[in-house]
Design a protein around this nucleic acid. Structure first.
Lengths: 139, 139
DNA sequence: TTCTACATTATAATAGTTCTAAACTGTTGA
DNA sequence: TCAACAGTTTAGAACTATTATAATGTAGAA
């Protein structure tokens, strides 16, 4: 929960110029009680609800990628026709409801730490992500 | 490792008509010592190397989807611009090398079973997939 | 052999995403 | 303060993976 000028600071210290568009997107993504998942399309809808000055689609893509690169967003690995992003960048995993096409956070306390007892020479582990696909009991 | 007529049988018992195209694709996908990962594009290339009678792109998509539905292929959840499939349908997880854009099987013995201590009411777990992203040590 | 439902095919259509190049704007330093 | 410049935004075109369409072909049953 930050206000307008905090986002300016946050952006500036990340080496991103605090433009109107980026600040607006910060407000939409980060000025919420709860974290959430979204697609680019979802975000575009939120923006058009939140403001009259529309932000071009290219800028939305650019900004989301910039935020992901800075670690303010995570992309969730899932095979879908579109990319899913998560404003919750802390370590946690997901359920994916294949009937509802819905992503649900799994509280990290509910997953035993995943131990990988092998390594690839010359490579370091960047992330370990668990996706639990679920479906209706009678399907 | 099956031969031509075994694939005919396999297809027929799955309720899929054993057409020339499907048999050829079976040979390419399943007549190998080792399992492997592929994209549609990879498969199209393999087909054109293996035969003179080309198979239309739509048929390749249809066939891969049909095989996935029958459980002969698994789709790997990963954010990429294209879908990855796996001829290894046994339970196992993956490394994804972000530098090389390469998928590598993790031997199931090298992963402690993932315990999910929570459930979604009315839903059953269909799969639990771990993706371990790796990158070059000096990056 | 004939019929029918299922498959294949080329091509068009769709959708998400990236590219382009011109216009705009935040920041720096004179 | 203001000019200059590098970074940013923009509309729209381009690109790419995938799906839809509708006509033609074919496996299998009767």
């Amino acid at each position: 929960m930050l206000n307008y000028s905090n986002y300016i600071e946050k952006l500036r210290t990340s080496g991103l110029r605090p433009t109107k568009q980026r600040i607006k997107i910060c407000e939409i993504l980060f000025n919420t009680e709860k974290t959430f998942h979204f697609t680019i399309n979802d975000l575009v809808k939120k923006i058009s609800k939140a403001t009259n000055n529309k932000i071009s689609l290219a800028t939305v893509y650019n900004t989301v990628h910039a935020f992901k690169k800075k670690g303010y967003l995570k992309e969730i690995p899932i095979n879908s026709d579109q990319s899913y992003f998560d404003t919750n960048t802390s370590h946690h995993h997901h359920f994916y409801d294949e009937n509802q096409k819905d992503l649900i956070d799994i509280d990290d306390a509910d997953v035993e730490p995943v131990k990988i007892n092998t390594r690839i020479p010359g490579k370091k582990i960047k992330s370990v992500e668990v996706l639990v696909k679920v479906e209706d009991i009678n399907s």
